[in-house]
Lab assay of single mutants.
Amino acid sequence: MSIQHFRVALIPFFAAFCLPVFAHPETLVKVKDAEDQLGARVGYIELDLNSGKILESFRPEERFPMMSTFKVLLCGAVLSRVDAGQEQLGRRIHYSQNDLVEYSPVTEKHLTDGMTVRELCSAAITMSDNTAANLLLTTIGGPKELTAFLHNMGDHVTRLDRWEPELNEAIPNDERDTTMPAAMATTLRKLLTGELLTLASRQQLIDWMEADKVAGPLLRSALPAGWFIADKSGAGERGSRGIIAALGPDGKPSRIVVIYTTGSQATMDERNRQIAEIGASLIKHW
């Protein structure tokens, strides 16, 4: 067993022997301040990774656009098919120029040779490549099948209805392509620590998230040296922004954090800054 596999296998073990965790309302004060600064709703939840206990939450059962955070769930569904012998990570998928959609920095470079399922998941999570996500959605049967996968996990809230990039439209009061912070946090925890996926697939999923290259201005910008984070960000229309993450000190994750916002007129930089400040408060009061 590799060191990384050992780390993920012992996530519940280490967490069980940690000192009790206590909620700190100071972080919620910052979440509410972010709402004021952005002029928009902000949803927040913080779960203990081992027990699933909610440590703090704000608007945990209000719907927010998922945006690209759905790509972690998508690759979880792909990995479940791999575990069941219905898919192979090494299978190569070929596609054409007509398949390319807006923001496809990886797939646009491989029109000639195609990409493997493993490479597509890596591109979808680490670079948020939209064509990679659409190609992977095709392998599982489309958005409705991802929703069905989530329902089978016990998540009857999260739903995907459309493809990239239309799913980022974020129309107010439109339930399409949305989740709730509580539902997303619980589902992410199941994917990373539950028995739904094999140990190898859980490790692969967290490795992809740990290698995320496009979430630097968010929670990662607030992390002290030595902290662990595996995350996936999302951005959408109407001032929408979000991030889902597993993080913790001492090089291992111990909490799940989900943050979503929508309806702001603020710039992307300002949305990023507010999420980073929430992260800084979380870490300060850990």
Rank of each mutant, 00 (worst) to 15 (best):
S2Y: 12
S2K: 11
S2Q: 13
Q4N: 14
V8D: 11
A9C: 11
L10W: 07
I11R: 05
P12H: 13
F14W: 07
A15R: 02
L19G: 14
L19F: 15
P20W: 02
V21H: 05
E26Q: 10
T27F: 04
T27I: 09
L28M: 12
V31H: 01
K32Y: 09
K32D: 05
D33K: 14
A34C: 10
E35I: 03
E35N: 03
D36R: 15
Q37N: 15
L38G: 07
R41C: 06
V42T: 06
Y44M: 09
I45H: 05
E46S: 15
L47G: 03
L47C: 09
D48M: 06
L49F: 14
N50V: 11
N50M: 15
N50G: 15
N50I: 11
G52V: 04
I54G: 04
I54P: 15
L55I: 14
E56A: 12
R59W: 04
R59L: 04
R59S: 05
E61K: 13
R63M: 07
R63Y: 07
R63H: 08
F64L: 02
P65E: 02
M66C: 08
M67R: 01
F70A: 10
G76Q: 01
G76H: 02
V78Q: 03
V78P: 00
V78T: 07
S80T: 12
R81W: 06
R81M: 08
V82A: 10
V82M: 06
D83P: 02
D83S: 06
A84T: 14
A84V: 13
Q86T: 13
E87Q: 08
Q88Y: 13
G90V: 12
G90P: 08
R91D: 05
R91H: 09
R91E: 06
R92P: 08
R92I: 14
R92D: 06
R92G: 06
S96A: 12
Q97C: 08
Q97V: 15
N98R: 15
D99W: 07
D99V: 09
D99A: 10
D99F: 07
D99G: 06
L100K: 05
E102G: 09
P105T: 06
P105C: 04
T107R: 01
T107H: 01
E108Q: 10
K109L: 13
H110Y: 11
L111N: 06
T112R: 15
T112A: 13
M115V: 07
M115S: 04
T116G: 04
R118T: 14
E119H: 09
C121S: 05
C121F: 01
A123R: 01
T126W: 04
S128I: 00
A132M: 00
N134V: 04
L136P: 00
L137Y: 09
T138W: 10
T139K: 08
G141F: 04
P143G: 06
K144Q: 13
E145R: 13
L146P: 00
F149P: 01
F149V: 09
L150C: 12
H151P: 04
H151D: 09
N152L: 11
N152S: 14
G154H: 06
G154A: 07
H156L: 11
R159M: 07
D161R: 03
R162D: 09
R162T: 08
W163T: 10
W163P: 10
W163S: 10
E164R: 01
E164D: 01
E164P: 01
E164S: 00
A170E: 06
I171G: 14
P172Q: 12
D174M: 04
D174S: 07
E175W: 13
E175N: 13
R176A: 08
D177E: 02
T179F: 00
M180Y: 14
P181A: 07
P181D: 00
A182S: 13
A182Q: 11
A183M: 10
A185D: 00
A185L: 02
T187M: 08
T187L: 08
T187Y: 03
T187H: 05
R189T: 10
R189M: 10
K190V: 12
K190N: 14
K190E: 15
L191G: 02
L192I: 15
E195G: 14
L196F: 13
T198W: 04
L199Q: 14
A200L: 10
R202K: 15
Q204W: 06
L205K: 00
L205Y: 02
I206D: 04
M209F: 03
M209I: 02
A211I: 06
V214H: 06
V214T: 09
A215F: 03
L218C: 05
L219Y: 03
A222W: 06
A222F: 08
L223Y: 03
A225F: 10
G226M: 07
G226H: 11
G226V: 04
A230E: 01
D231M: 04
S233G: 10
A235Q: 04
E237Y: 12
E237G: 15
E237S: 15
R238V: 09
R241I: 03
G242R: 00
G242D: 01
I244R: 00
I244Q: 01
L247E: 02
G248K: 02
G248V: 01
G251R: 10
G251D: 11
G251M: 10
K252Y: 12
K252E: 14
S254D: 13
S254Y: 10
R255V: 06
Y260D: 00
T262A: 08
S264C: 07
T267F: 07
D269E: 15
E270C: 12
R271Y: 03
R271H: 07
Q274H: 12
I275H: 01
I275G: 01
A276T: 10
E277H: 08
G279Y: 03
L282Q: 06
L282F: 08
L282D: 01
L282T: 09
L282M: 14
W286D: 02
W286M: 07
